[in-house]
């Protein structure tokens, strides 16, 4: 239950990074989204329920066979989301090969031009 909970959180953080979150600086080096009024955090209504599965393999590098698990969600979700967006763009006829996170609507729109 704890591992699943950590993975849920990791997935959500990764999706946040892929779609919303980014530290934006102006040309003078001033951080322009330094508060929650400007910085976009994923909210409860941005997500569906998650389904998790695991492939249980003991780690060979320590006597207990233990390893970290929670960050797996954070590592997996950004490429999954970005690839999904690229796939959607390709199927719409936009041959976009590279797009930078976070995939804000402006960035997606620019990539389509």
């Amino acid at each position: 239950m704890i591992v699943e909970g950590q993975i849920h959180g990791g997935v959500a953080q990764g999706v946040g990074q892929a779609l919303f979150e980014g530290a934006e600086y102006d040309e003078n080096g001033q951080l322009t989204n330094a508060s929650y009024m400007d910085y976009c955090m994923p909210r409860a209504d941005d997500f569906p329920m998650f389904e998790t599965g695991s492939q249980v393999t003991p780690c060979p590098h320590n006597p207990l066979g233990v390893k970290g698990a929670g960050e797996a969600g954070t590592i997996g979700s950004p490429p999954a989301v970005v690839n999904a967006v690229l796939d959607a763009l390709w199927s719409g006829g936009h041959k976009v090969k590279d797009i930078r996170m976070p995939l804000t609507s402006e960035r997606v729109w620019r990539a389509m031009q």
């Binding site: 909970g5 849920h8 959180g9 990791g10 997935v11 959500a12 953080q13 929650y36 955090m41 909210r43 409860a44 997500f47 329920m49 998650f50 969600g73």
Partner: peptide, 9 residues
Amino acid sequence: FCRCTGYHN
């Protein structure tokens, strides 16, 4: 906001 749970639980 919740930063840990992904809201699922």
